[in-house]
Amino acid sequence: MAIPLLPFRILVFVLSCMPFALLVLDIVTGSLGPDPGQTVTEALGLSALQLMIATLFITPLARWTHWSGWIKVRRMLGLFAFFYASLHLMAFLQFILGWGDLWATFTKRPYIIFGSLAFLLLIPLAATSTKAMMRRLGRQWKPLHRLVYPAVALVWLHFLFQARSDITEMVVYGLVVAFLLGVRGYWFGWRSLVPLRIPKRA
């Protein structure tokens, strides 16, 4: 298929920037409501989850559409997910915690523990996203990047454990994530979902 790659990449870049741009616009126009810190933190977190899910859609989309262009934007989507996750963490520390109560927060609150673990898992993925690192890691690169599976599961738990009463939104995201992991298990075998497992040399 002759879909030009550059415009496609620019489109994905612009779309990925949109949540951030909209937040900036909301801040400047003052439409974040009376508790802007909370609003910003939640919006950044949701964008991070959505972009993680977007990266997980790449492989299925490439298979369904027989177009390899999807693969070319996966790194960008993953780095955007990390960008939003980092901002989300900073926003939480600054706007919600005010840098107080750190020890209790990160040891006692289950949803914080889930979110923190997910973020820790994303750090090596962002750090090894360059072409040079891909070359250096070789056959180890792919198993390492399967850490995104436990990471997205932890993010979902992080989301679920904040629910007060209505979990409709969490259920919807959970179904999408379960589908994306399930379709991989179905296609490539369930062992392909295990991160860090390096297949034996044929």
Binding site: D35, G100, D101, R109, P110, F161
Partner: peptide, 13 residues
């Protein structure tokens, strides 16, 4: 159990 009650954000914040 999920957050501290020591402080509050007086709205509008």
């Amino acid at each position: 159990p999920r957050w501290s009650q020591k402080r509050e954000r007086r709205l509008p914040s």
